[in-house]
């Protein structure tokens, strides 16, 4: 397992992220997109939004997980190569927020993913929605932890 440190270094240099919106209200999704827009522009630190989970190191998850989204989210997670981690953006992804008692919600994202991968690692960024500064700070902390 001596390749892991190299991966770790590569990951810190330029983490590629894949964004999954799981039936949220899309406010967090917009704030995530805001991180990529000119004012915050995380791309200059090497953070790249990619189009496939197979290219990604970090998954950004926003919104509570609806029952219909559960399987797709778990499958998408398992397609990500190791080492992998998830940043749960917004209070809905962390703890279902306002939708806690809704009938069609399967659970917060961490519980849904742990059903298929008990080893999964998460960093929680609460807020409704968290400001772009908070999301960036969360991402930085996540990369320090890995």
């Amino acid at each position: 397992m001596h390749v892991a440190p190299i991966f770790g270094r590569a990951l810190r240099r330029s983490p590629w992220v894949f964004h999954v919106g799981t039936s949220g209200c899309n406010n967090c999704d917009i704030e995530i997109a805001d991180c990529l827009s000119p004012r915050f522009d995380v791309e200059r630190f090497g953070v790249r939004l990619v189009g496939s989970p197979r290219h990604a190191d970090v998954m950004l998850i926003s919104g509570p997980v609806s029952m219909a989204c559960r399987r797709p989210l778990q499958e998408t997670w398992l397609e990500m190569p190791r080492p992998r981690a998830a940043l749960l953006v917004g209070v809905c992804a962390c703890s279902m927020g306002a939708y806690r008692d809704a009938y069609s919600v399967a659970g917060p994202a961490d519980r849904v993913i742990r059903e298929v991968d008990p080893e999964a690692r998460f960093l929680y960024v609460p807020g409704c929605p968290p400001k772009p500064e908070t999301i960036i700070a969360g991402l930085v902390k996540l990369l320090e932890e890995i």
Partner: peptide, 12 residues
């Protein structure tokens, strides 16, 4: 398919 996003807000 619109069921991915349905949370049941009207009932809430």
């Amino acid at each position: 398919r619109m069921d991915y996003i349905h949370k049941g807000l009207e009932r809430l």
